[in-house]
Nucleic acid binder design. Structure first.
Length: 767
DNA sequence: AAACAACGCATTTTT
DNA sequence: TGCGTTGTTT
């Protein structure tokens, strides 16, 4: 135990060894949050305060869950398999599989990813002749997910106008459709579990009694449904609930746009009467100047629980700030700085380039490519999302649950087998008429269409029969052949990558089997009937069956069902491959939780970061500031901040002011670098424009011409000016000439103004 | 059924 | 500007 707790600082130690009571841990960036969480689990088990089965730990991402399991295995000589550690969705999946009857779901229910969900909605809108101009599928999806995230079914959603009533109606129809198909979306996993436990008292009490300790990671990211889910499981309001241990950082709350509610932190404190509140403020990551910058910036936010990071490391290097004349030049500068970092011995994978939005990566990528520096961009398409992989998965889905219409439509004519739109329309009409799935409706379609559809059904049935005794990887292999997917891509000219991805499915299945305990020595899958009679299930009063605590997933679902869940819940890594010697590029959002020796935060301009659309939402700018806080705290040793006077965005040149965040950083921690070649609007031929590596692209020339034409005697486009009332601004355009000249000026947070140049008192800024 | 043109749209993202 | 979606042509 000494070993377990050694090297913890006093706050960490206090958090780890708290009594079995509710607790809120405010864990600053780089304060050892994951360490506290995992050590607490290990400590609870080792001191025998709880068994491994009496504990539940929940995270948002699979990566975080895996990390926790890995660290735990290193701390304790226990088998972590079978422990209730996972994502909200993963744990819900497990509960719903175990209690599928009580949850009114088929045992082989399947999970829709966002793509699938959208296609269900599109189909629904089409089938009901709904104008998708008036009800865009994306809007409908947002409406439905939002309602579910609030814990509301269609009959509980308030509708104030005809439009909303229609949305509610669509929500209702969507849920019915999913129920018919035996599919659930992500939000449904949570809502269904929540409803199951609310409704079913014996079940609820069983789990409440079981989970003595519930631990939550990234608590600031929970939405209302997740918070209520936790309240329910922790037995809030009942005599004998478990202890809820929540770890989070309100300053790193950057997901309000997807329903996260930071307010859950204070609600938790109040509703659970939390007496144990511990702040982890000792930072083990960043040097002083970086931390000072982060602290001073975030102090500008009003709604905070209050926390200040400190470090024992020295001040370190100052934060370097660079003003570029253009986005191209900014990219060029990043390359120069990276080169010298690498020359000084920095590993490429320890250099991260962060940006607010993905559109900004293009220019930088181009420059990196030209310079021959290997790089990796996060956030591309994930393995299980690729079209060819989803096709193969659709065949597997049909074998496990033929009523999944999305899967059916995806592959009924892919590869093409002469089943055209007319056949599908006939089939859809029949399915509609009898209220059944497309698959079940096949026998009701007559004629040529009917026989080709029957051929498809025969194919699926045939493969299902043929493979039912085979191990999963072999099953995948057979489906790969029988579906003729491989053949199809072999005939395609650019199909080599796709074939490789398809082949990889066999190894993905192999790996899944071995990692998830479906391999040799795994408990045999019992099947729906056998489960109840076997030792895996214990009878609980009133005939409710509750699977035994340690019943692994392998006992409640077939390898195929499990693999399909896995494919939906874990779309595959788009996180960095560790050890890959490449410079890391990503949005600030995806950088959360990561750290690097050297970090560039780019595009620090008003309108971009903070993003312009954030100023419209209340609390938007504060969230942007938290985002900046997250970005800054990613850096261990060196931090670079940059902005550009001119930026090409959506095919238009934009003149932005530098971000307001610069004014919120400690001047003494910053070191302003002067551009190697300053942009020069006054005719200097050796300007940065000409030095830019890609100036032949044409855009620079176009800008240069525009400047030349618009140049009046006094003011020029792109020039920085100062105004008595609006402060600093950048001239974006000049209309008219002589005494009538008016300038359109971007005053950043004060907006765009058009000023008469003969009236407005402008001052030239010597930038 | 595939190839091509036209259109509109463009924060941030995990499950 | 550049991509993904939709409609049109061959």
């Amino acid at each position: 135990m000494q070993k377990l707790l050694h090297n913890l600082n006093p706050e960490q130690l206090a958090a780890v060894t708290l009594p079995a009571q509710h607790a809120l841990i405010l864990a600053g960036a780089g304060s050892g949050k994951t360490r506290v969480l995992t050590t607490r689990i290990a400590w609870l088990i080792q001191t025998q305060q709880v068994s491994a089965a009496g504990l539940l730990a929940v995270t948002f991402t699979n990566k975080a869950a895996k990390e926790m399991l890995t660290r735990l295995s290193a701390m304790l000589p226990i088998n972590t398999r079978g422990m209730w550690i996972g994502t909200f969705h993963g744990l819900c999946n497990r509960l719903l599989r175990t209690h599928h009857r009580d949850a009114a779901l088929p045992q082989t229910f399947q999970i829709l990813d966002s793509q699938d969900q959208l296609s269900v909605i599109k189909r629904l809108l089409k089938a009901n002749n709904i104008d998708d101009e008036k009800f865009p599928p994306k809007t409908v999806m947002y409406f439905i997910n939002n309602a579910k995230d609030q814990g509301l079914r269609a009959d509980k959603v308030d509708a104030y106008d005809a439009n909303e009533r229609k949305l509610v109606e669509l929500y209702q129809m969507y849920d019915e459709q999913c129920q018919r198909e035996g599919v659930v979306d992500f939000a449904e996993l949570l809502l269904r579990t929540y409803e199951l436990l609310s409704r079913n008292q014996p079940l609820r009490e069983h789990y409440q009694a079981r989970f003595r300790h519930i631990l939550v990671d990234e608590f600031q990211d929970t939405n209302n449904l997740q918070y209520n889910w936790l309240k329910l499981l922790a037995g809030h309001g009942s005599r004998d609930g478990g202890a809820l241990f929540a770890v989070g950082d309100d300053d790193q709350s950057i997901y309000a746009f997807r329903g996260a509610n930071v307010g859950n932190m204070s609600s938790f404190e109040r509703e659970f009467q939390v007496k144990n509140l511990i702040k982890l403020e000792q930072n083990y990551r960043s040097h002083g100047h970086i931390l000072d910058s982060a602290n001073m910036l975030i102090a500008n936010n009003s709604k905070r629980l209050g926390k200040n990071l400190r470090t024992d490391a020295g001040h370190g290097e100052p934060v370097r700030v660079y003003e570029a004349s253009s986005d191209l030049q900014e990219a060029q500068w990043i390359i120069e700085e990276s080169k010298s970092l690498i020359a000084e011995g920095a590993s490429r994978s320890e250099i991260a380039v962060l940006y607010r939005s993905n559109a900004q990566s293009r220019v930088i990528e181009h420059a990196l490519f030209s310079a021959g520096i290997p790089y990796h961009v996060y956030g591309g398409q994930r393995y299980f999302q690729r079209a060819e992989v989803k096709h193969l998965i659709a065949y597997l889905q049909l074998m496990d649950n033929p009523h999944n219409d999305s899967a059916f439509l995806r592959v009924v004519n892919f590869p093409t087998r002469g089943i055209g739109v007319r056949s599908i329309e006939q089939l859809q009409a029949a399915a509609e008429q009898y209220g059944i799935s497309l698959y079940a409706a096949v026998p009701y379609v007559a004629g040529k269409a009917g026989s080709s559809l029957a051929g498809f059904v025969k194919l699926v049935e045939g493969v299902r029969f043929e493979t039912q005794q085979l191990p999963l990887p072999e099953m995948v292999r057979v489906v790969l052949e029988a579906s003729t997917l491989l053949q199809h891509y072999q005939n395609e000219k650019e199909g080599a990558d796709r074939i490789e991805n398809l082949e990889q499915m066999v190894s993905a299945a192999t790996q899944f089997i071995s990692e998830e305990g479906f391999g040799q020595g795994a408990p045999a899958y019992l099947g729906p009937q056998a489960q109840a009679q076997s030792g895996a299930a214990v009878a609980l009063g009133d005939g409710v069956e509750v699977l035994d605590a340690d019943a692994p997933l392998a006992a409640v679902m077939s390898p195929l069902s499990a693999f399909l869940s896995h494919a939906s819940l874990e779309a595959g890594d788009n996180q960095a491959q560790a050890g890959q010697e490449a410079l890391q590029m990503m949005t600030v959002h995806s950088a959360k939780g990561l750290e690097f020796d050297n970090v560039f935060i780019t595009g620090l301009e008003e309108g971009l970061f903070p993003h312009e659309s954030s100023s419209k939402e209340d609390g938007g700018v504060e969230e942007e500031r938290r985002l900046m806080y997250v970005a800054i705290t990613r850096a261990r040793q060196r931090l670079y901040l940059s902005f550009a006077q001119t930026r090409m965005l959506h095919g238009q040149t934009r003149y932005n002011m530098k971000s307001r965040f610069f004014d919120e950083l400690p001047e003494e921690s910053l070191k302003w670098l002067s551009p190697k070649v300053q942009a020069n609007w006054f005719g200097n031929k050796k300007s940065a424009w000409d030095m830019a590596p890609m100036s032949s692209a044409g855009s620079d020339n176009a800008i240069a011409q525009k400047i030349a034409h618009a140049s009046g005697p006094g003011w020029r486009i792109g020039e920085s000016v100062s105004h008595g009332k609006f402060g600093e601004g950048v001239i974006v355009n000049i209309e008219g000439g002589g005494g009538n000249a008016r300038a359109q000026i971007n005053f950043g947070q004060y907006g765009m103004k058009v000023l008469d140049l003969s009236i407005a008192k402008l001052e030239r800024l010597g930038r």
